[in-house]
């Protein structure tokens, strides 16, 4: 049992609260810019994923890593989530996991 380093479910809005902390977010790959992935968060904002291997465009990836700035995450683990992710549901879960049901998550 170890709950010392949780990865909080975030969208772009919630990312701001966790700069320097471990987070996880689902983004859709928009384009590859050098070593970074430019993706769209579940709440429709642009996020930069640093240090990830490239993924095909339009796929959803889950990024677990450290929130670098308001709009970027330094990736530790990226998982291919395929191309059929219900972003509105995921976004709502992010909000609930940081709100009413926070005690279940962090």
């Amino acid at each position: 049992m170890d709950t010392s380093s949780p990865a909080v479910l975030v969208n772009a809005e919630l990312l701001k609260m966790y700069v320097g902390k471990r987070v996880r977010a689902v983004v859709m790959v928009m384009r590859i810019d050098g070593g970074s992935i430019i993706g769209q968060s579940t709440d429709g904002h642009q996020l930069t994923i640093k240090g990830s291997q490239p993924f095909p465009l339009s796929t959803f990836i889950e990024v677990i890593g450290i929130a670098d700035t308001n709009q970027s995450i330094r990736a530790e683990i990226c998982t291919d989530f395929g191309d059929k992710i219900d972003t509105s549901t995921y976004d709502r879960v992010c909000q609930l996991a940081n709100g009413e049901f926070k005690s279940l998550f962090v």
Partner: peptide, 17 residues
């Protein structure tokens, strides 16, 4: 295999709670 299951699981956790 369907990664929506992750969000779905957390929704179930909230519901059960």
């Amino acid at each position: 295999t369907d990664f929506n299951e992750i969000a779905y699981h957390f929704i179930e956790c909230m519901y059960v709670h």
